[in-house]
């Protein structure tokens, strides 16, 4: 190509990428840097001056018992989300793929329906279903002679119920993703094991799972990163992090510090720590999900 058209090409490339690049710069890249900057200051989001406090906000995160509790809760959330939103959908997608013949797509269509709902609706419905006095579950348990404990009084129980609310929404979505991954395992490999009469569970464990590693890991990372964000809505609608920060996690605590307590510095330091967790997960994703990053080499 001559130099005129290559100059034109450069301009076009720029013009096509500019809208996305500008939005990402203004609402993502610069904010990340600004959050890092704010994390070294004591500020209340409104005052005209900010006080430089060095690493104090970070020190308080690791010494303050409330922050420690919230970090610990976050770990509990991650474990629960992995079981509910990753392992169970994965198991069910294997069942649907390899153990039933017909109706695969009907299950797909039905499982996906809750994903259409707002998490606010999910939170409302489950707070009704799980209502310790007047809800259907409490009603059934009363028939059996036991009473449903008031889960809003216990941090651990509240976390379980809040995770179940997001599970209702995310289950079908993750199921569809994982089922697709299983569908991309070459059929001839599966047929070959059938001829050698290798038991199904062995075939799945030794062949399908390793071949499906890449998409499974993608869904696993998605479950953690998206799950912690999804669970924010039920926390905010139902428990507001209570009782006494018992059901809060690092994301909700960031929000609370920023927009309820107006401790911008603390909130920013928590956000930076969240970002570091994200970087670790991103690194793992690049390492395990081969080929994703270098698609455009």
């Amino acid at each position: 190509m001559n130099s005129r058209s290559s100059k034109k090409n450069k301009f076009l490339t720029f013009a096509y990428l500019a809208p996305t690049a500008i939005i990402l710069l203004v609402f993502m890249i610069i904010p990340i840097i600004y959050t890092l900057y704010l994390s070294f200051f004591d500020w209340n989001l409104i005052a005209p001056t900010k006080d430089f406090v060095g690493l104090e906000n970070y020190i308080s995160i690791f010494t303050d018992p409330v922050n420690q509790k919230v970090l610990l809760n976050t770990v509990f959330y991650i474990v629960l989300l992995l079981v509910l939103n990753f392992l169970i959908p994965y198991f069910i997608s294997i069942v649907v793929k390899f153990f039933i013949g017909k109706m695969q797509s009907s299950y797909k269509i039905i499982f996906f329906i809750p994903s259409l709902f707002s998490l606010v609706v999910g939170a409302m419905l489950f707070s009704w279903i799980m209502n310790p006095v007047s809800g259907p579950i409490a009603f059934f348990m009363r028939q059996l002679g036991v009473s449903l404990p008031n889960w809003t009084n216990s941090g651990a129980m509240a976390i379980v119920v809040l995770c179940l609310m997001t599970n209702w929404k995310v289950f079908g979505y993750n199921f569809v993703l994982l089922l697709t991954g299983l569908g991309s395992v070459p059929q001839n490999i599966i047929d070959a094991t059938k001829m050698d009469s290798i038991p199904k569970w062995r075939m799945i464990w030794d062949i399908v799972l390793p071949l499906n590693k890449s998409i499974a890991f993608y869904v696993l990372i998605l479950t953690i990163v998206q799950g912690l964000q999804y669970v924010f809505t039920p926390i905010s609608v139902i428990t507001q992090g209570g009782p006494y920060y018992g059901s809060s996690n690092v994301l909700y605590h960031t929000y609370l510090n920023a927009f309820v307590l107006y401790k911008t510095g603390n909130a920013s330091a928590l956000a930076v720590i969240t970002f570091l967790i994200f970087l670790v997960l991103l690194y793992l994703e690049i390492k395990f999900v081969e080929g994703r990053a270098d698609r455009y080499e």
Binding site: I30, T35, L38, Y255, A271, T274, F278
Partner: peptide
């Protein structure tokens, strides 16, 4: 993958 809380304040 960036969680919204990271960019929420700015």
């Amino acid at each position: 993958f960036v969680p919204f809380t990271v960019v929420m304040i700015p």
